[in-house]
């Protein structure tokens, strides 16, 4: 994958954004990223197509799950030297608060990075980092067999 190859050569925000922009579903959801020092934050820009419940209103649970899964992939692509986009093996999502109609942020952390498999955790929040709206963990395949 060319955007991933470029990111391996240039670990900076511009190349990470270019990787995200090369993924159609990331563009569809409206995912962005910011790098400050060694801290990577993924951003889900709010727009109407993300809403699941118009009465609350609240962001669709599937969108939050999709964002967290994408955030784990992007985080792994950022911290590793993988040649392929990491592929999910399993993902567990805990829904903690309803997602309000505003931007959502996520940060990931690698729990274990083996040769073939990585275990990642991620948390998403809106108005305050210590009030997460969702958390997820997952195993990802880092090498195509």
């Amino acid at each position: 994958m060319e955007a991933l190859r470029q990111l391996r050569l240039n670990k900076d925000e511009a190349h990470l954004k270019a990787l995200i922009q090369s993924i159609p579903y990331a563009r569809f959801l409206g995912i962005d990223a910011e790098v400050r020092g060694d801290e990577l934050t993924m951003i889900l820009r709010y727009h109407n197509d993300l809403v699941g419940n118009v009465m609350l209103p609240a962001i669709h649970g599937g969108v939050i799950g999709g964002f967290l899964e994408m955030a784990m992939m992007i985080h792994l692509a950022w911290v590793s030297e993988t040649e392929h986009l990491p592929r999910p093996i399993d993902v567990g999502i805990d829904y903690l608060r309803s997602g309000r109609p505003r931007d959502t942020y996520a940060r990931g952390a690698v729990t274990k990075h083996g040769r073939r498999i990585a275990n990642v955790r991620v948390e998403a929040w809106q108005e305050a980092r210590d009030k997460p709206i969702a958390a997820a963990h997952g195993h990802f395949r880092m090498k195509e067999e």
């Binding site: 994958m1 090369s22 993924i23 159609p24 579903y25 569809f28 959801l29 669709h60 649970g61 599937g62 969108v63 799950g65 999709g66 964002f67 899964e69 994408m70 986009l85 999910p88 993902v91 999502i93």
Partner: peptide, 17 residues
């Protein structure tokens, strides 16, 4: 809805929704 432009495979997030 594609998650990997090299393969054209739909992203897991769509399956999640």
């Amino acid at each position: 809805l594609v998650g990997n432009p090299d393969t054209g495979v739909v992203h897991g997030g769509v399956i999640t929704s």
